[in-house]
Amino acid sequence: MDTQKQLDDFQKRIDNGETIEPKDWMPERYRKQLVRMMSQHAHSEIVGMLPEGNWITRAPSLKRKMVLLAKVQDEAGHGLYLYSGTETLGVRRKELIEDYIYGNAKYSSIFNYPTLTYADICVIGWLVDGAAIVNQTMLAKSSYGPYARANLRICKEESFHKKQGYEMLAKMASGTPDQKKMAQDAVNRWWWPTLMMFGPNDSDSPNSAELIKWGVKTKTNDELRQHFVDRSVMEAEAIGITLPDPDLTYNEETGHWDFGDIPWDEFWSVVKGDGPMNRERIKARRKAYEEGEWVRKAAKEYAHKKSLEKAS
């Protein structure tokens, strides 16, 4: 059991803005929350490769094909160092992976939606990565050193992805009638799920207060969401895209954009596994994992043989 003195000292360090490193003492609950958050973040990067990978072979120009491949490659990289970061907390990558492909561990629900047209790829860059950046910019100041550093690095790459997605969407939105239709349709489908990415309203978010107290997060879900909405309204307007929310109005008093009710029923249903692509995503990851088993075994066996040869 963590003693009160330990907890108080830990809280003092957090309040002083110190960074917690892997070898430092930390409350068991803090460790658990971080394992949960970091591994969910890692799983999201990996599952996120699927909806985007869906368009690599069909990308409409060599330039866009390379942009998309590089982006998917970056995501594998993010997954890799987030798993490594999580391993500093005493868990193994294998366990974490098996937790989400066979168990109940979560990943971002946004990836349970399908990418139907190429415009979806642009919108994922603009909105989904844009929302991720808002969240990760905050997490780059997280109290846990390895997680903060991972987010700092991820943010830099995500900003690039967002820029590329937004630019291409702008081209489509001012392109041929077919392109305009695809662009607007994609925004219509992705807008609400993107707002859900910030998590439930503060009043329904059981983890928030604790995470803020420990400096893992510094802003609430609703604060982050509002920041994202304010920014997106301007960005949408600049490229002639309409956000699918008739209630979106500027509030003179608060200086923010008010928005309509988020369909939370849909959110909870997707979180629980009933979304359009949940089963597909898990099936694809499970298939890759199981079909890769003989490869991982061979690599292990080979390394073992080589180490024996070296020793003798």
Binding site: G53, M66, L69, V72, Q73, A76, A284, E291, G292, R296
Partner: peptide, 25 residues
């Protein structure tokens, strides 16, 4: 590039995407 997201381990997702990117480049 068809391997992206379907590799036997994360390191290979990264490596195969990287080689695909080089070759298309």
């Amino acid at each position: 590039s068809e391997w992206a997201g379907h590799g036997p381990e994360l390191e290979e997702d990264l490596a195969l995407a990287n080689i695909a990117l080089d070759m298309i480049g």
